[in-house]
């Protein structure tokens, strides 16, 4: 039943245009033998929420930097919003369309006042002053930080700083936002906040989100999960498809979500659980179903 549902979702996604497409995309750091990103072929549909999973050194962050033209591919092609980074100006245009939120909230804030920092991207784009003020107002409201507009960045918590970083990115009106392990330095509540915010931007503002992470619980909530290891795409599919086999995912140095592992263990003990349980809610429903049978 779930499988059928997946098919229909996938079918719907296929109809949408690809906003990011990589053909044989490869990157090798200078002086290294092996590729950090090794002939990756990927298409990401407009409006989707995609998780990129992988252990340290799997090439997921390098992939993110290639998307934003912070580094140039050694081989292969990348196209973002049908733009290819051939010249400096193309790179500039791509960076406007494809925003990026980094890992360390401290190291991506430029200004001493929150609103100045949010305006930084717009100022670089050469947006007119009145329009900048309007966009800063809007983005601070969207991330729920209006009352901090005059605050100093070092007075904010990690989660709040990440919100400001997101505000700075959405003020540039991007079509894609890449979150490069943006929650890994935050406490659990901050992590949840930022993830929910990304979800909301995806649903309400139709921003395509690339969520790079090593937290399975977050990836389990995404439309599509791409698992990378040694620079290659190893698995690609819905969260349910990727996580239903805890053994396979462990091969790539990742841990399946707790509920998937629990379901596996319970099945071994003879419980008749359905396939593809990855969240607590699903487990609850399934267990209640079993209980009602008794």
């Amino acid at each position: 039943m779930t499988w059928c549902a997946n098919i229909s979702v996938m079918g719907f996604e296929d109809m949408k245009e690809a906003i990011i497409s990589a053909k044989d995309l490869s990157f090798r750091y200078e002086g290294k033998e092996s590729y950090a990103v090794d002939h990756v072929n990927i298409e990401i549909e407009k409006g989707s929420f995609v998780a990129v999973l992988g252990r340290n050194g799997s090439g997921k962050s390098t992939f993110a930097k290639l998307l934003n033209v912070l580094i140039e591919p050694t081989e292969g092609e990348i196209s973002v919003c049908s733009l290819q980074p051939k010249t400096e100006d193309d790179a500039f245009a791509i960076r406007q369309k494809c925003g990026m939120v980094f890992q360390n909230p401290d190291n991506q804030m430029v200004a001493t006042i929150v609103e100045e920092d949010v305006a930084f991207g717009c100022e670089n784009l050469g947006v007119a002053p009145g329009e900048i003020v309007r966009r800063v107002d809007w983005s601070l409201r969207t991330v729920g930080m209006e009352e901090y507009r005059k605050a100093a960045p070092h007075m904010l918590s990690g989660g709040q700083k990440q919100r400001i970083a997101i505000a700075g990115v959405i003020a540039m009106l991007p079509e894609v936002i890449v979150f490069d392990e943006s929650t890994s330095m935050l406490d659990p509540s901050g992590r949840q906040d930022i993830f929910d915010l990304a979800m909301r931007l995806n649903k309400e503002n139709n921003v395509t989100v690339l969520w790079i992470t090593h937290f399975m619980e977050e990836a389990a909530k995404c439309d599509r999960v791409i698992v990378m290891d040694q620079g290659r795409v190893k698995m690609d599919g819905t969260a349910r498809e990727v996580f239903s086999d805890p053994k396979k995912i462990e091969k790539f140095g990742l841990e399946a979500p707790d509920m998937a592992k629990l379901a596996e263990a319970l099945r071994k003990e003879g419980l008749d659980l359905k396939d593809g349980i990855i969240t607590v809610d699903e487990m609850e429903v399934e267990l209640c179903r079993l209980l009602s049978k008794i």
Binding site: N68, E88, F92, R95, A119, F120, C122, I132, V136, V169
Partner: peptide, 26 residues
């Protein structure tokens, strides 16, 4: 390390020096 990351973050936000830059509050 911070300087390195900050430079990258600034580049990702389209920073390319003072030319063509506007100000929020001129």
């Amino acid at each position: 390390r911070r300087a390195d990351e900050l430079a990258m973050a600034m580049e990702a936000r389209c920073y390319r020096g003072g030319t063509g830059r506007t100000k929020m509050r001129p």
